[in-house]
Design a protein around this nucleic acid. Structure first.
Lengths: 135, 135
DNA sequence: TTTTCACTTTAGAATAATTATAAACTAGAA
DNA sequence: TTCTAGTTTATAATTATTCTAAAGTGAAAA
């Protein structure tokens, strides 16, 4: 993803392309493969990568702004930290608790044959399949 | 579940049947339906229910001991608190984010037709399906 | 271009969930 | 009854995250 596209991406979601947001966006979205991270890991990687340090609060702000804008999705993992995923399409996950590693599963690789109907006037928003791994 | 069974349940999982553990176990397991809770909600309910106050740390200890012993399962919900479930059989969940309510889905009510094979020498430990609800 | 101001960033304080600590207590074996 | 390892307790510590308020900045308007 080119810098011009990063700018577009930010602008189109109502986010001013500030120095920090552009730097974080480049780091997150200029990749071939999807990227899973926590705010903590992202902070460490950014600190290592670049000279100018971005405040932790800014990383929280930016990640949440990207999430709200639909550029990141949140993945729920047993434990205390919140994981984010640059893959925002509908998909599922493997989770390897040994390595704390998340692996994407394409939505087409899981077919659910039977599903219960939603309770009392509710509708189904989405279905998440989470496959825990062991050795 | 009778008091004698609570004692057995504790003993058989290597937990001394102390006053506090018995009280918590009675509250959690003497029910018809499965029960979902957070440590916070359990603490409030116990405080309301009984005269003698149990320390919060003891509730954490006990809930974790029950989980380790296999008497409770942990359910991951988007958000910051950890939910527990008295249903320890293999099953799935609806989640209503409006009310923060979890609803059990029997394992037989969801049939998965196609599933990807586990990566690089890993095996599948378990599959959790989480259905988010909307209005 | 300069001005202006709402939006951002920042460091540090505040909050919330959970875990650690260490002293007092207790179940149950001897 | 005595003894000891296991347990409870209040409180401190830790960790992830959010809040705050002051300083900085992008970009629209003059």
């Amino acid at each position: 993803m080119k810098k011009i596209d990063i700018f577009k991406k930010l602008r189109s979601s109502g986010l001013r392309p500030t120095k920090q947001r552009v730097e974080i966006a480049k780091f997150l979205f200029e990749r071939e493969k999807t990227f899973h991270f926590t705010v903590e890991s992202l902070n460490k990687l950014l600190t290592k990568k670049s000279a100018s340090k971005i405040a932790l609060a800014t990383i929280y702000n930016t990640v949440h702004a990207f999430k709200t804008a639909g550029h990141l999705s949140e993945v729920e993992v047993r434990g205390n930290k919140t994981y984010f995923d640059t893959n925002v399409s509908n998909h599922h996950h493997f989770y390897d608790s040994d390595t704390s590693e998340l692996i994407d599963i394409d939505a087409n690789d899981i077919i659910i044959q039977k599903i219960p109907k939603a309770p009392n006037g509710k509708k189904i928003k989405n279905v998440e399949v989470f496959i825990n791994l062991k050795n």
